[in-house]
């Protein structure tokens, strides 16, 4: 561990520095994608069971690199409130809803990540005012030296989005749009689609949280 003096005169350890999750992140965190047998319980992309309270939705998208190519070895984590705007921090696969989920893009085909969840309720910002419904996403991959934090918002929440203090912290209105997922209906199921663009045109907003 490494220490540096704090302004208060005490000692502060330095945070352990990040290193890339690499191309084989699946061995550790998404065993099915690596081709490994599953353990008794895994953290997975189904955050909500059919009986979970709220509107059942699927979140789906790709991760695109600076060349416009899909990133086929990305790993994502999602964190969101339940339909009432409350986080469910105690991860328990016996419960109908978990606030936390994991997904990976696939090496072939459409190369999409996806989460099966419910539409989150509104969570208060630090000043107590409500934020628009959102899902926090963290993106890990080979070539990403420290994971990228972003948020997914919903295009059918225009009024809430316009008033959201975090969306409004993004100075450029055009860049806010990079966080807004588009609603689709496929075979009667509700799906929101958002591509995460790592670099260049339409680059996704990433947050320092």
């Amino acid at each position: 561990m490494s220490q540096q003096p704090t302004r208060e005169g005490g000692l502060l350890y330095r945070e352990t520095p990040s290193q890339t999750a690499g191309p084989y992140v699946h061995i550790g965190l998404a065993l099915d994608v690596a081709g490994l047998p599953l353990r008794d319980e895994e953290i997975w992309s189904r955050m909500a069971a059919p009986e979970a309270e709220g509107e059942a939705i699927e979140l789906v998208g790709r991760v695109i690199d600076g060349n416009g190519d899909p990133v086929r070895d990305a790993f994502l984590e999602a964190w969101q409130a339940d339909a009432n705007g409350d986080f469910q921090p105690d991860f328990d696969l016996q419960k109908p809803f978990n606030s936390f989920g994991r997904s990976a893009t696939t090496a072939d085909g459409a190369s999409e990540w996806s989460f099966t969840t419910v539409k989150p309720g509104r969570v208060p910002a630090a000043n107590g005012k409500p934020m628009a419904p959102h899902v926090c996403l963290a993106v890990f991959a080979r070539g990403i030296n420290i994971h990228l934090n972003t948020r997914l918002y919903f295009d059918d929440e225009a009024e809430a989005n316009a008033a959201c203090p975090v969306l409004n912290a993004v100075e450029s209105p055009a860049r806010r749009e990079t966080l807004i997922a588009r609603r689709e209906e496929v075979d009667g199921k509700i799906r929101y689609r958002l591509d995460i663009r790592l670099q260049g045109e339409g680059e996704t907003v990433f947050f320092d949280i």
Binding site: G66, N145, L148, L198, E203
Partner: peptide, 13 residues
């Protein structure tokens, strides 16, 4: 990391 690194600055919360 060259094609996988954002060009824009992170937005600080």
């Amino acid at each position: 990391s060259v094609p996988r690194s954002p060009n824009q600055a992170l937005v600080s919360l």
